[in-house]
Amino acid sequence: MLEVKDVNSFYGKAHVLNDLNFRVDAGTVVALLGRNGAGKTTTMKSIMQLVKPRSGTVTYKGQNITGWPSHKVARDGLGYVPEERRIFTQLTVLENLEVGRQPPRDGSTTWTETMVFDLFPNLAERRNNLGKALSGGEQQMLTIARTLMGNPAFILLDEPSEGIAPVIVEQMARVILQLKSEGLTVLLSEQNLHFAQAVADGVVIIEHGTQKFVGSLSELQAHPEIRDQYLSV
């Protein structure tokens, strides 16, 4: 469904991504693993075209989307959930959802506020609160909910478990599995191997912007030395 081919990305002069190559099949969850600063967020942004890759291609549903404006990528069904809970703090929960809303799209669920609140009951109680009044976990839920309002077929989740209470992390894992069961394809970036193990089918490990391992979860489990070398456990 998504194919990243020979992608190189830069921030100014810093070469952040070095020849990335991997694919994500429809209906699967792939975890992009690596430590802080390994290039996970840049990978996400390069797929989303928020960072334009200097070379290489990103193909989504058979279409080369490299160089597209980000809003067009989003309208094509790629949903992006940023790290660090980038919600609109000056807007209410409902307004945040409104910003994410897109027209219905063939082949993916059409989300409504009610459905989103079913998925995240905590948000329902706080629908008229300003974003800045939410707790860290609630903000993280809101970023996901907001992206779902765009009816994506594929979502990019950047570090969904970072810095939130363990209970919420568990809830996140459940949500991801539920979304998968509804047919969504997911690429998530993680540092927390436990979390990744709970939800992912496939794994991509990057280190210093370079790909070190691509394979299924069971393949990674068969090679504990890779895990020990590149991931903090």
Partner: peptide, 18 residues
């Protein structure tokens, strides 16, 4: 709402399809 959202975070607004 979109205008207010863009005031705060343009990149995010665009990533949401606007």
């Amino acid at each position: 709402t979109l205008v207010r959202a863009a005031t705060q975070d343009r990149e995010m607004v665009s990533a949401l399809g606007v």
